[in-house]
Design a protein around this nucleic acid. Structure first.
Length: 430
RNA sequence: GGAACGAUGGCAGAGCGGACGAAUGCACCUGUCUUGAAAACAGGAGUGGGUUUACGCCUACCGGGGGUUCGAAUCCCUCUCGUUCCGCCA
């Protein structure tokens, strides 16, 4: 959530920043919020004054009563004020919830260094491609779904039978490989991040804090009967761990990592990437996350970029980094960098990690604050997170990059420790 | 799922219609004392909102929401969560 005070005191600054997002309707929302804010403050002022008078009266009534004097006129005045207050209260609640709803839908201010652009075509490659061979062999130009089926490690048909379209299933060494990727990613960051195994179902408040709700409700699975949501990423539960808390500065940064399943309805993407492992309703991911002070956030972003890049590079596949432009950034994002791996079989750059800095946007929604040592008052923390590794796309890229001439697939050396001795996924006949 | 009890400041724990933002203890901060520390003594200290150039003033907050009342931490209703017991289960 953006800071309503900033909007109130520096409306032009906020307007200019959000204009960069290239979505005109945002500016209308700003004006709406501004109008509601004015009205809300009027109500609060009148309501507080009324309360003050009631408090005064009730004290006087107490005194008169004790002295056995007539207090009825004061009581009558108080009753009248009470009636008025009730009316104001109702309007306050109504205006306040409308304002909150409007504010929750206004996106974050982009970072000054984020590049301007209208959509994904304007994203800019800022590093790489690295580890890119001059050319790929013909046997690498086979899409992973064909290789996966041929090797018997991917069973898309049965996944569809069990769960419907856009679900997938790995078997045998394919399943082991998927789990190995998780274990590998977790181990890469265990030096600095506490491992969490969070719940996969969370409350509405939790998904609101990170920004998935209320605006993107259609993208998430809702368990209406119990008012719970399936997490689209571990970012949601990890961020909300400290919701409503005031942390000591000395405890920052807080660093967590988690393996979790991720559930996405993929509303609006029907027909896209339907084959294979590139887009599905459920997938596994290892996420890293930090809560930090505003001044330490840029360094944390750099650290996240280096950590994720090093993890991906260790797998030995071609990759590049993209700076996401203002028009393509997610609602909560202040700045984002994507890591993509090249998959020669389907000839696509696959997004396997998104590294994001949310400034205080999520912290304000989730009410996550910190207190500076020896200082009064509180400030909102900054949140950052990154996919350490998104399993299915990396899995797919491995099947394409490391496919041998005979159709078998070599397993990257860094994963060998997690593969029960396997170094290759052999063809069925072997 | 059933029953009982509970939820108060960083923690512990009083208060059960009026002077209660809330006793007391611990922890914390600042003084005095001390070469320094401890102890002792004195004092200070919560969060949000509104208003003010500012000192400040007002307001809300005793798990959440609603009600009764001139007035609610305190009475009533309701929800959530916790503990214990029973049932059921991985």
């Amino acid at each position: 959530m953006i800071d309503v005070r900033l909007l109130r005191t520096q409306p032009d600054q906020v307007r200019t920043a959000l204009t960069r997002r290239a979505k005109p309707e945002i500016l209308e929302q700003l004006d709406h919020a501004l109008r509601l804010d004015v009205r809300l403050r009027d109500i609060v002022t009148e309501r507080d004054a009324s309360r003050a008078r009631i408090n005064e009266l009730s004290k006087e009534v107490g005194v008169l009563r004790r002295d056995k004097k007539d207090a009825e006129p004061l009581m009558a005045e108080s009753r009248t004020l009470g009636d008025r207050e009730k009316v104001l209260d109702e309007e306050y609640l109504q205006v306040e919830s409308t304002l909150r709803d409007v504010l929750l839908r206004i996106p974050n201010l982009p970072h000054p260094e984020s590049i301007d652009g209208a959509g994904s075509d304007d994203n800019k490659v800022v590093r790489g491609p690295l580890l890119m061979p001059t050319e790929f062999a013909a046997h690498q130009r086979v899409p992973h779904w064909e290789t996966g089926m041929a090797l018997g490690i991917l069973d898309a048909e049965r996944a569809v039978k069990i769960s419907g379209a856009m679900f997938t299933m790995q078997r045998g060494l394919g399943a082991t490989l998927a789990r190995a990727l998780c274990q590998f990613a977790l181990d890469r960051h265990a030096d600095a991040f506490e491992e969490i195994r969070p719940p996969s179902l969370v409350t509405t408040a939790t998904l609101t804090a990170t920004g998935q709700l209320p605006k993107f409700a259609d993208d998430a699975y809702n368990i209406g009967r119990d008012d719970l949501w399936c997490i689209p990423t571990a970012e949601a539960p990890l961020t909300s761990m400290h919701a409503g808390e005031i942390l000591d500065e000395s405890h920052l940064p807080v660093r967590y990592m988690a393996f979790s399943p991720c559930f996405r309805r993929e509303a609006g993407s029907a027909g896209r990437d339907t084959r294979g492992m590139l887009r599905s309703h459920e997938f596994d991911k290892v996420e890293i996350l930090a809560l930090t002070t505003p001044e330490n956030a840029p360094a944390m972003l750099e650290e996240f970029i280096e950590r994720v890049t090093a993890t991906i590079a260790a797998l030995g596949m071609p990759y590049r980094l993209l700076e996401i432009c203002t028009g393509d950034m997610g609602q909560s994002h202040h700045r984002s960098i994507d890591v993509e791996i090249y998959a020669p079989g389907c000839d696509q750059w696959l997004e396997v990690s998104s590294i994001s800095w949310f400034s205080d946007y999520q912290a304000r929604r989730g009410d996550i604050r910190f207190r500076r040592d020896g200082k009064k008052g509180t400030e909102f923390v900054h949140t950052l997170n990154a996919s350490a590794l998104a399993v299915p796309r990396v899995w797919a890229a491995i099947l394409e990059n490391f496919r041998n001439q005979d159709g078998s697939v070599a397993i990257p050396a860094v994963l060998h420790p997690y593969m029960r001795g396997a170094t290759i996924i052999p063809t069925k006949r072997q």
